[in-house]
Nucleic acid binder design. Sequence first.
DNA 1: ACTTGACTTAGACATTGTCTATCGTAGGAT
DNA 2: ATCCTACGATAGACAATGTCTAAGTCAAGT
Lengths: 138, 138
Amino acid sequence: MSDLLERLRGRGWRMTAQRRVVAEVLDGEHVHLTADEVHARAVAKLPEISRATVYNTLGELVSLGEVIEVSTDKRAKRYDPNAHRPHQHLVCGQCGAIRDVHPSGNPLADLPDTERFGFTISDVEVTYRGVCPNCAGA
Amino acid sequence: MSDLLERLRGRGWRMTAQRRVVAEVLDGEHVHLTADEVHARAVAKLPEISRATVYNTLGELVSLGEVIEVSTDKRAKRYDPNAHRPHQHLVCGQCGAIRDVHPSGNPLADLPDTERFGFTISDVEVTYRGVCPNCAGA
DNA sequence: ACTTGACTTAGACATTGTCTATCGTAGGAT
DNA sequence: ATCCTACGATAGACAATGTCTAAGTCAAGT
């Protein structure tokens, strides 16, 4: 599991108990946690950890490109540790479940030059919305 | 400009000064305003209008499918009155400028069945991120 | 014009995120 | 091994955005 910790150490990250805990939380379960959920899980492992530290650490991980911020939900940002394989998200509008999915083509190619208005495009974010089998069945 | 107002009236919307003002603000400029910006512009036309009413009215317009909620920016939701032509957004990461763009194909088709996990997909949200000519030039 | 239920209001409250001043500590230097 | 120091952590205030409530107001049907 510690590929993440290894990489961070390799980048000269100063390793602290708090940062380790946050990294472990993210690395442990490949779900999409909100900052507060990360905080809650971190507190379980290290009760003194503060909210600010979790936010700071998450922000640093995002800057380092180790995790991705997603805002599928209109409320809080979520953090996706699966940053090394480009992927998109499939969101259930009822229960809020999120799945990672992998596109067939390159979505960047779908935008013709005439629609780029001189922008230099670096990234595309694609979110499919629908209803998951669970919610549809009920 | 009052296609919007017409449609709303036709749907049995109870027409009040506040709702008219909010609808006019959205219908007037085809930009992507935050709820607070809508409120500010509404106050300019009708000083007594309250924040709650603006939020309520925006929520209703979204439910009715007359405007779309977009969260390109990580902060506030933005409201896009251009709900009747499917489109996507192009966002400048530096200045936050947002442009509507029109896709060449149907992005829904890009997700193979094997990646749908039983979801019934109803919508795709695509956001291209990059740098606008203005910011790139500077 | 009257009545009624839907709409509006002000402001408290909730949630999420940021900032600051202070304290603690990881890791290099000695 | 111990000390130093700069970087990180902390608590809690603050800010931004959004939601809720209780009471007052008004559009529209009768």
